[in-house]
């Protein structure tokens, strides 16, 4: 399910520190809700974002959604493989389906996010 070492937002993004950068993607719940993903619109490398800014977008056969920066920082890398294989987000949302990496992050912003247990509880409250 939702990896324990990540932090989560109410807009269903995840963020985790991996190999020197903060990696961002959308959760398994988000990809399941969206269905087959047909396009991912990624930010420019070097783009500055404040926590909560819309920086990317994801299109599926059913819907469209913006993806928000979980923390303030600078985009240092994007997952270019999603351009030709957006279905990676469906298949592996916490791995090969990552969206972008952030550097120069305001670490204090992480405190406002949910841990895996809190996100699980948040999801339980969603589907009634």
């Amino acid at each position: 399910m939702n990896p324990e070492d990540l932090k989560y937002t109410e807009a269903h993004e995840w963020i985790g520190f991996q190999k020197g950068a903060y990696v961002v993607g959308i959760t398994d719940f988000a990809q399941e809700q969206l269905g087959e993903i047909t396009h991912v619109d990624l930010p420019e490398v070097g783009a500055k974002a404040q926590q909560g800014d819309p920086v990317a977008a994801v299109d599926s056969v059913k819907a469209w959604s913006e993806v928000y920066a979980p923390v303030s920082g600078i985009v240092v890398a994007v997952n270019e493989a999603l351009e030709n294989e957006p279905e990676r987000v469906n298949k592996d949302p916490y791995g090969a389906g990552w969206f972008f990496k952030m550097g120069d992050v305001n670490v204090a912003d992480l405190d406002a996010l949910m841990d895996a247990a809190a996100y699980r509880e948040f999801l339980n409250k969603q589907d009634h």
């Binding site: 047909t38 396009h39 619109d41 299109d59 469209w64 957006p86």
Partner: peptide, 10 residues
């Protein structure tokens, strides 16, 4: 209307 890419009008 047709998009330049796979990104869709909604």
């Amino acid at each position: 209307i047709v998009s330049d890419t796979r990104q869709a009008p909604r």
